[in-house]
Amino acid sequence: MPSATASTIVEDVVQQRRGDLVELSHSIHAEPELAFVEHRSCAKTQALVAERGFEVTAGVAGLDTAFRAVFGSGSLVVGICAEYDALPGIGHACGHNIIAASAVGTALALAEVADQLDLTVVLLGTPAEEAGGGKALMLDAGVFDDVAATVMLHPGPIDIARARSLALSQVAVEYLGREAHAAVAPYLGLNAADAITVSQVAIGLLRQQLAPGQMVHGIVTDGGQATNVIPARTEMHYTMRANDSGSLRELEARMSDCFLAGAVATGCGHQVEATEPSYLELTPDKWLADVFRAEMVRFGRTPVAAEFEAALPLGSTDMGNVTQVMPGIHPIVGIDADGASIHQQAFAAAAAGPSADKAVIEGAVMLARTVVELAETPAQRDRVSQLKAERDRA
């Protein structure tokens, strides 16, 4: 009998660990935790690879819920990103439990062929994707420095092999005025709530002139404390998105003028502060994405045609920061959510359903086989290794 190929081995490993991986997904789903405090989810994501013999380093980049788990000592170092943070109020409505479990499955599968493929497998626990930019912080801290290529997947309502995302930045805008009695002497006050109103009117008018791909959305987090007191302090948070970083910088400048308008019109002081690192746009590696697309088709999935992928950006992710630095992919693996999309309660419910379990297993297989293909294709292995060497020299 011929010996099993690496691609066959990794698929078999995932199928053998099916029960453990689905259990992991459901366990994380059942105990949703927010950005930077995903302590239980982080520990759960480490457990199976630690048992397999991965060397786990916790608290990397100074983040309590970030980790690196390493297996093997091969010349090609491949990273697999696991996310596990949830959303306030709606839990795992982005399906990060699926991401974590599929990443663990990929890592366990590749560990079985690491020596055969001259591979080092690095499972990266990356917190705070929904708010906080864990991957950006880990990049800056050097956690990805030895990695030549990075893969992960994300659940969604449809299958997209070469998924794109928007560049993003988020700010907190504070207005400082002067309190006064709203009936007795309102003329003595400087109304910080009015500053927000003026700013939001300016932003509403700006929307007509936004470039394609640019968008803004925000909330008021402090609008005052009592109706009979002119508010002396207010605050709002705004998110800005654009197709690429250059367009985002242009949008930020225009939004800055809108924030200033509120202060000028009311006489209030104001300050604008970034609330987290900027998220750069995804630039998925075409070769890796094409291999993953073939894997989707092999499983009977119907990914969006390549010519339409660029027209379907799905929000923003700090994985974009990673793909700006090295070859990587962030495909969308479809689950049945009865018409719901990410960040909806119905999607959170679906993220622990049968199609989500299928996405965990098939997703892990597809990612693992994509990495195997990379390791076994000399030209592509050389390409990512050369890009890594150029990063090291820069």
Rank of each mutant, 00 (worst) to 15 (best):
G267Y: 14
C268T: 15
G269Y: 06
H270C: 09
A274K: 12
T275G: 00
E276A: 14
L280P: 02
L280D: 10
L280Q: 14
L280K: 14
L282D: 06
D285M: 02
D285A: 00
W287K: 05
L288G: 10
A289G: 13
D290K: 11
D290G: 09
F292W: 08
A294R: 15
E295C: 06
V297Y: 00
R298E: 11
R298L: 09
F299P: 00
F299V: 02
F299A: 02
T302L: 08
T302I: 08
A305L: 05
A305T: 07
A305H: 09
A305S: 13
A305P: 03
A305V: 06
F308R: 11
A310H: 12
A311I: 00
A311T: 10
A311L: 12
L312V: 08
P313Y: 02
G315N: 12
G315E: 10
T317I: 07
T317D: 09
M319H: 10
M319Y: 11
M319Q: 13
G320V: 03
N321C: 07
T323Q: 07
T323R: 03
Q324F: 00
V325Q: 14
P327I: 03
I329K: 02
H330V: 04
H330C: 03
H330Y: 15
I332L: 15
I332Q: 12
V333Y: 13
G334K: 10
I335R: 05
D336H: 11
D338W: 00
G339T: 06
A346W: 00
